[in-house]
Structure formats: structure tokens, C-alpha cells
């Protein structure tokens, strides 16, 4: 079922998540940190999941992490990717600061990917509004 008009899914941007996507457009990976506990979390939430306080801020992080695990998605659940873009290489990255984030791995052949590979963020402009954080081997 190829739908020529289908687009890749874009993230709905909400009041809570806008700073994350603003950061990506500006070439910075930002996540929330608690100003009391000094600890980060992701995905975004309205309070610190540790102390439950609202005193938090978005901070730019290193963009460094490791591949916790990765898969190649063959099933065409989303029609927005062209047939020749499959399989999609999807990774669960553990950021140096602790939280996990799903992303795509780029600039590396599948044969060279392994768990615990050191990676860094690289930004990919999807639309004027959305820039996606991908990851590549750390240089």
C-alpha cells in the first residue's frame, strides 16, 4: 500500500515540548532538569518525577550517548517512508546525562552498529517547523 502523498509523521508540538523542538532547530539538544534535585528527565513532564516540584528548566546537554539497543524496522507501519528507505534503523539511545531517547542512527552501515556504541546527536531538518535529532557515531 504505497500512498504517494503520505508524509512521515511529524511530532505535534505542545506548550510543554516546544523548547525541545526550538532547541533542535537551533542545533542544541535540550532536556528538562530539576533546579532542586539537579536531575534530568525525558520525555518532558510537568514536574520533576523525583521531588515533584515545578522548579525546573530546559538545559542544553552534551548530545553524547550510547546505543542501548537498536533494530531495523522492516514492516511498513508508516507509509511516509519510501520503500527504498526500509529497513529503518531505530535506536534507543541512553544520553550521557541518563535519560533514554528514541532516534534514528545515521552515517553508519548496519553491520557496524552494536550496543553500547558511542554516539552524538546530529540534526536533520524535516520541515521549517521541525528539526529531528538523529544520532551518528561519535567522532
Amino acid at each position: 500500500m504505497t500512498d504517494a502523498t503520505a508524509q512521515k509523521p511529524l511530532p505535534p508540538i505542545t506548550r510543554l515540548t516546544k523548547p525541545f523542538w526550538d532547541g533542535c532547530r537551533e542545533g542544541e539538544l535540550r532536556i528538562q532538569f530539576c533546579n532542586i534535585c539537579d536531575r534530568p528527565w525525558f520525555p518532558p513532564a510537568d514536574n520533576c518525577p523525583r521531588c515533584l516540584m515545578d522548579d525546573w528548566e530546559w538545559r542544553t546537554v552534551s548530545g553524547h550517548g550510547t546505543v542501548w539497543s537498536w533494530i531495523q524496522m522492516h514492516q511498513r507501519y508508516f507509509p511516509g517512508w519510501e520503500p527504498d528507505e526500509y529497513p529503518i534503523t531505530i535506536a534507543l539511545i541512553q544520553l550521557e546525562e541518563g535519560p533514554y531517547i528514541y532516534s534514528n542512527l545515521v552515517n553508519i552501515p548496519a553491520e557496524e552498529i552494536r550496543c553500547d556504541l558511542a554516539v552524538e546527536v546530529t540534526f536533520h531538518k524535516a520541515t521549517d517547523a521541525v528539526t529531528l535529532p538523529f544520532f551518528q557515531p561519535r567522532r
Binding site: P11, P43, W68, I71, M73, Q75, Y102
Partner: peptide, 26 residues
Amino acid sequence: AMFEAPFGMTSPGAVTSLMFRRHQYR
């Protein structure tokens, strides 16, 4: 929708596959 689908990440099977790959690695 915000942090998985834009990367093509979807389905319970994909999550289980990630876990199995890590299990294989360890």
C-alpha cells in the same frame, strides 16, 4: 506521537525486539 513515531518507532514488537537485541549482546 511526539518522540517515537517521527523516527519510525512504533509497535510493541519493536520494543521487544530492542530488548532481545540487548539480551543477545549481553
